[in-house]
């Protein structure tokens, strides 16, 4: 474990807490894409299957359980909560997630470390996480005025990925033989997708104006 990875995990944890706080405090999920949240739950469930058969550390196990439970909780809020579900804009959140999930599964079946069920599902989760934010970014472009907490949520998610890039550079420099091409390439693409958002987020922050992504 290194400081970059720990900071990345904490930023990821914070992003989910910010999202839950926003939904719970405002009793609204306006601007939040249910599709992205469902994709994240799928990412966590397919990636953390090793919870069933291997133990790495208390930290590792706790964080995996937190990510699965918290994303399930966000989905419950958006789908079931009597007040919050009224504020979900399904007419705007129309990204065809199958166009993301199917290519990721096909790629996972062809490009993987090992052709076993858990390894293919793990690889699928790596590819899927790279594109899971797209429905959320598309929704932000459509809903003109993005509320601050939702903007912060996406910014923290991007920050967690950027910290993971630093973590990989650090591990390459300090751990001879450490190679994770699938994770590195997929994670770099994922972080690149945030660059556009980072630009508009920082611009709106410096001009002290509402965040709005050009459609």
């Amino acid at each position: 474990m290194n400081i970059f990875r720990f900071a990345g995990d904490m930023t990821h944890l914070l992003s989910i807490i910010v999202l839950l706080l926003k939904i719970n405090a405002t009793k609204s999920c306006a601007g939040v894409s249910l599709k992205t949240q469902e994709l994240y739950l799928l990412v966590f469930v397919t990636r953390y299957l090793d919870l069933l058969y291997s133990y790495i550390s208390l930290y590792n196990t706790f964080m995996k359980l937190f990510f699965i439970c918290s994303s399930g909780c966000v989905i419950w809020y958006i789908r079931e909560h009597k007040t919050v579900s009224q504020t979900y804009d399904s007419a705007q959140d129309t990204f065809r997630v199958l166009f993301l999930a199917c290519p990721c599964m096909i790629l996972a079946l062809t490009v993987n470390h090992d052709f076993t069920v858990t390894e293919v599902l793990w690889t699928f989760s790596i590819y899927l996480e790279a594109v899971a934010i797209l429905p959320q970014l598309v929704l932000l472009q459509r809903t003109k005025n993005v509320d601050t907490l939702t903007g912060n949520y996406v910014f923290l998610l991007g920050g967690y990925r950027a910290l993971y890039l630093l973590n990989w550079i650090y591990r390459i420099l300090t751990e001879p033989g450490y190679r994770q091409w699938i994770v590195w390439i997929s994670g770099t693409i994922q972080t690149a997708i945030y660059c556009d958002f980072f630009y508009y987020y920082i611009k709106s922050w410096r001009n002290n104006e509402r965040l709005s992504l050009p459609s």
């Binding site: 990821h12 790495i56 964080m63 995996k64 470390h113 793990w122 973590n167 033989g177 994770v183």
Partner: peptide, 10 residues
């Protein structure tokens, strides 16, 4: 790389 380092990231 050992199985440990492969899957120790979240």
């Amino acid at each position: 790389s050992s199985i440990f380092s492969r899957k120790d990231e979240l």
